[in-house]
Design a protein around this nucleic acid. Sequence first.
DNA 1: AAGAGAGTTGACTGACGCGTCAGATAGTCG
DNA 2: CGACTATCTGACGCGTCAGTCAACTCTCTT
Lengths: 199, 199
Amino acid sequence: MSVMAAASEDDRRRAILDAAVAVVVERGYASARVSDIAKRAGTSTGTVHYYFPTKVDVLDAALQHASERSHARHRAELVALSEPREQLLRLIDLQIPDADVADEWSIWLEFWNEARRRDELRARNHEIYTRWVGMIDTIVRNGQRQGQFSLDIDPADFALRFAGLFDGLGLQVLLQPSLENRWRLRAALRGVVERELLT
Amino acid sequence: MSVMAAASEDDRRRAILDAAVAVVVERGYASARVSDIAKRAGTSTGTVHYYFPTKVDVLDAALQHASERSHARHRAELVALSEPREQLLRLIDLQIPDADVADEWSIWLEFWNEARRRDELRARNHEIYTRWVGMIDTIVRNGQRQGQFSLDIDPADFALRFAGLFDGLGLQVLLQPSLENRWRLRAALRGVVERELLT
DNA sequence: AAGAGAGTTGACTGACGCGTCAGATAGTCG
DNA sequence: CGACTATCTGACGCGTCAGTCAACTCTCTT
């Protein structure tokens, strides 16, 4: 295998996954067609099956792909900020459904829906959700350690409620993406931070 | 048309809608088959098409059906309670994903997912969500008028956050329906009521 | 009794899509 | 060069499914 071929293989694989994510966003998980994915990746259905045995394999890998990207983006953005307060506020703005991020929310929604019926995906969802809640939990703990946040609240409890509020309202913002709704989501999340953490 | 026939027609229609809801819960909106619905309703695919021109018509009517049932149930339960505080706490227990209610949550999840791609469903989701938030809003206003709830908070704002928290955490309970998760959901919601409304 | 018409059936049709496969292309190695 | 392998292609087979339709039943009317 040449250097070119190796690079090409990775590119092709990634192109297929990116295409699969786009197709799931556009058509939905259950309505995604292998031919859609192939067309969007600029290849043939045969090649899609060359890299992934079945359609489900492509879609599962695509979800994994999207999840890794999202988490990496969060980490990269947060590591640049030193203050827990800044990190939490940044996390809010990073994840408000808007343009690219709306696509990410769409993937989560499709994922939840599919996970309802498939054990492996439910397990995956649990991991991803735990990681997401854990990220908030860690920020809160850091903030408490640095004396920036109130010690009255339980970090794990706060993290769960913060994540829940984010998901629930974010979902409606995804479906009704008006400026006002985005503003309300932001205000609600910042309000919780102010009321509960910043005494 | 005889009295029997008239009753039979309504029964058939309802049986088809009930079956459609069950199939959407079991297989998902996009994977629901007309033949599944027919079999579950104890009839033929021809009859399903006799009452509903297309599959989409059946499924949309089924969503409507489920939504009306859910709202009627809420109203019926709440009207029996006089105290706004009791009403809000009852609403929590009424809607925690569990047994039958889990099916209802499944329908919402399928519905949100589908609504993402279809304008009419997005509009319907907006109506249903507004009604749900409005129900909470009304309870809070009543509680404030009766001096039972704190006047410091804005009812509309509280209702939105309460509904968002309910949806976000409820979704995860649907996917991981452990006793512990149900308890956490309940505790989180009751906690918000206690902290913010009961001064 | 005969006709009308609502309600019901399930076999059938045509479309669609996943996965396969024979074959093409190009790069690697002996 | 010729054998071998990795990558890629798109037509095809086979199953699936929505919607149609001719035929049937049952009830009501005249």
